[in-house]
Each structure stands twice: as structure tokens, then as C-alpha cells.
Amino acid sequence: RKEMTAACTPRRRIINLTSVLSLQEEINEQGHEVLREMLHNHSFVGCVNPQWALAQHQTKLYLLNTTKLSEELFYQILIYDFANFGVLRLSEPAPLFDLAMLALDSPESGWTEEDGPKEGLAEYIVEFLKKKAEMLADYFSLEIDEEGNLIGLPLLIDNYVPPLEGLPIFILRLATEVNWDEEKECFESLSKECAMFYSIRKQYISEESTLSGQQSEVPGSIPNSWKWTVEHIVYKALRSHILPPKHFTEDGNILQLANLPDLYKVFERC
């Protein structure tokens, strides 16, 4: 597991931080080997919608929660590849102030007048994250320049770009939802926020969305749709870069829909 690298990086740093090793061990302890084997050997059937997909393993048909699986995938990559990410360069710098204002204007932020003026909160978020810029760049390849612009994001899987519609809320939550006081809790909560931002979430995906850094293989055609990215990038990574937690067998994120021999018997009677 320590050699797990989802995106190509030129050289690998050895990380011996106790906090990170502890988080890696927790993933191992909570892992479910049968689910790992199923995901490793599954045959992708198709997307139901951005949140759900169908896959077959041996004779069984499964309904998989793409949102939760991708979130767990990105969390584990962030923990196992800690401080070893490439950088996704933004085509132009994104001012943190503008991103924070967009987030505060969104109902998702939960902002009320009692929280104070949005401009003041946005300025605080910019200054707060600028103070964390060195650590964010060093460990997470999340790059913020001296003017308070976001200029780079971590490359977690080759050819995958997170849904940038979720970027404003991500920046807001970096400042408000991460435990910045304790090292282990900081790395864990920061990785979880980043994983949620990178995950496939239906509120940020339309039929026209593209999450891939590449064009489709047909010359002159439109960019790959999110469905292509889910199948050929995300579920491909799920084959080798995730140890599913045991609770996925109990919380409805992986559901067995049918045993195909039983279905064949039904059709034979028709």
C-alpha cells in the first residue's frame, strides 16, 4: 500500500510523520478485503446518474454509490500519497476573496446577518489561508500566491479535474471546517474536505460537464463527458487505489441488486 500512486510524480518523498502513518493504519484496520476484491475485478455496466452506477462482479449485479466511493478513493490517495502530488495549474489565478464571496452568497454556506458582513468574512478567509499557504503547498500541492490567488490544485489521478463549480464552497470550508490546531486532526479533516471537493457530486455535474483533463479519443470531437470520466478514470482507479471500509457493506453505498443465475431462471419461465 505504501507504493500506491494514482498520479505520476517525478520522485517520491518518504513521509514518516506519526500522524500520517496513524491515518494510514486506520484505513488498513477499517478495510474490507472482500469489497476490495469485488472492486478490483468488477465489470463496469454503466452510470445511472452522477451519484449511482451499476457494476457486475462474477454472477452478481451491484449498485454502487459513485459519490461515496470516489470520496473515499480521493481521501485514501491523499493519505497514502501525502506530500507526493503533482499540481493542476489553473488556467488563470482565482482570487480567494472572490471565491469566498461566491460561497457566502450560496445558501449552502449557511451565512446569516449575525455572522457579520460577507466582505469582512471573505477578507478573513483570504488572510487565514495565506498564512497556511506554505503547508498547503508542501503537503497538498494546493498553491496560493502572495496576492491571495489560488493558482494550483493537487493532481490526485492523472487526467482528472475536480468539478470546479464546487471550488468556492471548498475554499470556505478549508477556513471553517478544518481542525487547524492538532496535526493528525488537521491532516485528516483537510484531506476529507479535499476528497469531498474532488468527489463526483450530482449538484455540480450536468450532462455537459467534463471532468477530464483530456479530449476524447476521436479527433475533432467534444470533450469527454462526465460519464466517460466516471467509467474510464474514476472506476479504473477504484480497481487498484481503494481499500473500501467495512461500513460500506452496511450503509447502502454498495448494494447487491441481483444474482444473475437467479434472473436467468426467471427469464426461462417467461
Rank of each mutant, 00 (worst) to 15 (best):
M196T: 13
E268M: 05
L54K: 00
E3Y: 14
R201I: 00
V266Y: 10
S225W: 05
V34T: 13
K265T: 11
F248K: 01
E119R: 09
L243P: 01
I171P: 00
E113R: 07
E114M: 09
I157R: 02
S43L: 11
E119M: 07
L164Y: 07
K130L: 09
Q58R: 06
Y204G: 03
E92A: 12
I200T: 04
F128R: 07
G46N: 15
D158S: 13
R269M: 05
L172S: 06
I14A: 11
D181H: 13
K265R: 15
E250H: 09
I222F: 12
P107A: 10
N253L: 13
D115C: 06
N41R: 10
M4C: 12
S189Y: 05
P168T: 00
Y198R: 00
G110A: 11
I151Q: 11
M196F: 08
V178C: 06
L104N: 00
D138L: 05
L17P: 04
T210R: 08
Y264T: 15
N224C: 12
A94I: 10
K118H: 07
H241Y: 13
W228E: 07
F267H: 15
K2T: 14
H42N: 05
I79E: 02
V126G: 15
S212E: 15
G166P: 04
M4L: 08
V45I: 14
Y75Q: 03
M196L: 13
S225E: 10
F140T: 03
L23M: 06
F267N: 15
Y80C: 12
N16I: 08
A122F: 02
R36V: 06
P95S: 10
L64H: 00
Q30G: 15
F267S: 15
A53P: 01
V48R: 03
F85L: 15
G213S: 13
M135N: 03
N159T: 10
Y62S: 00
T67L: 01
E134L: 09
R11D: 07
F97R: 14
L17Q: 05
E127P: 03
V48I: 14
I242R: 00
C270P: 12
N159R: 10
L90K: 02
D145W: 00
E26L: 05
H241V: 05
A175N: 04
R201D: 03
M4Y: 14
C194L: 13
Q30D: 08
H232N: 13
Q256A: 13
I242Y: 04
G116A: 08
T249S: 11
V161N: 15
R173K: 12
V48C: 15
E165N: 12
C47Q: 03
I200V: 12
W226K: 02
G220I: 11
R36M: 08
H241L: 06
G110E: 12
Q76F: 00
N28W: 13
P93D: 04
D138R: 05
H232K: 06
Y235V: 00
S221N: 14
N253W: 15
P163Y: 09
P107N: 12
F82H: 03
Q51L: 02
P244A: 03
I233K: 08
I157H: 02
K132A: 03
Y139P: 00
E123N: 13
D158M: 13
S189N: 12
K227H: 04
H40I: 12
N65C: 05
H40M: 11
R89Q: 15
F85G: 00
L61M: 06
F85H: 06
L54A: 06
M135Q: 04
P168W: 01
I14P: 09
L153R: 00
D158P: 12
T5K: 04
S109T: 13
L63E: 00
S206L: 09
I205L: 10
T210L: 07
Q203F: 08
E3R: 04
K265A: 11
E3P: 09
G86L: 13
T9Q: 09
K246Q: 13
L238S: 03
M4N: 08
L129V: 07
Y264P: 15
H247Q: 12
I171T: 06
F85D: 00
E71D: 05
K132S: 04
Y80W: 14
L90S: 03
R11M: 11
E33L: 09
E185R: 10
L90F: 15
G148S: 08
E92Y: 08
P154E: 00
P162Y: 00
I77Q: 03
P10F: 10
Y204I: 03
K227W: 04
I200H: 03
I242W: 05
V266L: 13
L142K: 00
C8R: 09
V230F: 01
F82D: 02
L172F: 14
L96G: 00
S109K: 05
L54Q: 00
P162Q: 00
N41P: 02
E92G: 10
F197Q: 02
D115L: 06
H247W: 10
S206Q: 15
N253S: 12
Y264F: 12
Y62N: 02
L172T: 08
W228M: 08
D98S: 12
C8D: 12
H247K: 14
F128Q: 07
I233Y: 04
C194E: 01
L17K: 06
Q56I: 15
E3F: 12
K130C: 11
Y80V: 13
N28A: 12
E25G: 09
K131L: 11
C194P: 00
N159V: 04
I254M: 10
E92W: 07
S216C: 10
N149Y: 07
T18F: 12
N84R: 02
L35R: 00
P50L: 06
H42I: 10
A100H: 02
